[in-house]
Nucleic acid binder design. Sequence first.
RNA 1: GCUCCCUUCGUCUAGAGGCCUAGGACACGGCCCUCUCAAGGCUGGAACGCGGGUUCGAAUCCCGCAGGGAGCGCCA
Length: 475
Amino acid sequence: MSTVVTRFAPSPTGLLHIGGVRTALFSWLYARHHGGKFILRVEDTDRERSTEEAVKVILDGMAWLGLSADEGPYYQSRRSNRYREVLTQMRASGHAYYCYCSKAQLEELRSRQLAAKQKPRYDGRCRDLKETRAGAEPVIRFRNPTDGEVVVDDQVHGRVMFQNSELDDLIIARSDGTPTYNFCVVVDDLDMGVTHVIRGDDHLNNTPRQMNMLLALGATPPVYAHVPMILGADGAKLSKRHGAVSVLQYQEEGYLPDALLNYLVRMGWSHGDQEVFSRAEMIAAFDIRDVNKAASAFNADKLLWLNQQHMMRSPLATLAGPLRAQLASMGVQTDDLGLLEGVANAQRERCKTLREMAVNSLYFFKDFGAYETKAASKFLNADSAPILQQLSEGLAGLADWDAAAIHATIAAVAERAGAGLGKVAQPLRVAMTGGPVSPPIDLTVSLLGRERALARMQRALSYTKGPPPAGAPGT
RNA sequence: GCUCCCUUCGUCUAGAGGCCUAGGACACGGCCCUCUCAAGGCUGGAACGCGGGUUCGAAUCCCGCAGGGAGCGCCA
């Protein structure tokens, strides 16, 4: 049985964004589904444009998402010797040759072709040069077949044919001797035993050239799958101006990695009517052959919805850590895991992100400032004072501080006042949280803990007796 | 300009000739539930780019057109 080997090969010239992540995800899923191997390879042959920061985002991003590699990361910048070796071999076998054309000459050729409305391409004038020129610094070109055709049996596009006559002899090594992208990819995929190349469909046009080189090296080309790209929310190509942000920004904004992955896998792929997938479900159901051909636009609302769906389904333990981190970024430190999980449990179906959860849960972790003006005037006034008083007494006398007991107290007060639960819950809610919105009030009170809840009752009670002078600090 | 790719609701998609009065999801509107906010349930509006074929029958097959994208670099 042949083992599947896939790879993700980003170039660290820009920050890893969701487009790259989706490609990585498909490769990873395919390998996992088939029990194969997933390789991470950093294509940093362009030393000018590659940055340390971009490499770090790739590594950190993949780690955060849990897209674990079985091999790598490999760095092309450390494989120069191997490339040189293959270059020599290809020249010896006649599959590659020195080209002495200057950039100026090439530019002249190019503009002449463009003027004649022809496809710009190298005309092969150095193809059959007999001798090497001393002192010159030639590039090395691949001797592409001049006739026949190349058939790409693409897993998502089907059979795509290219005429060799449309291809020219591409440069595989610069005049300084360094190898170029298309060549490195070929050598790497060959050396690393990659069986399935899953990449963006902007590479479909490169594929016949790469296959020809592989053939020249006596290798069997891998299976190719060119996946469509992801567009910005406005339907335009994803770019810095159109929402192309580092994948790590989603972590900062409070998204769960599984939710992001779930969102991304559904772009260009589906499994019946299922929308929410766990990692295991994705792995079990994914097949690269089910991937669509058309590009898809990013939709932030759906990501938000999915994030909430995942928060609602996650074990509380996986929510506590990120929630604590969000709180910390707001200056609230806590190590109370029990409280964090309790709050996450109470809030997860009313928040779209962990950041939103943190923002809406601050009153659980520290005292709030002033009451919200509107809520206070509506619910903390002379009318509600008697109710708050009874609530205060009832709660203070509770033997067990749990939601059920608290609920009973609230119900009893409402009953005695001949009022609906709402008449009691809202004043209590404002007293506890400073505002009119929170999880179920009994749960909220129990989470706050006896001491804190009772103190806030007192604060509310004194507030109803007369608001403090304007500008007075709240507690 | 040349080559290659793509085209179902606003968005993500189902759809492999009759199961389509084109299904689901997000978003939006209405209703229900309800201590607030949510979550949840029900419900409404909303799409096969255009034109020719093939066929008893086409969103599905063929051809053309239009629109969009990619490649054509000593970038990756």
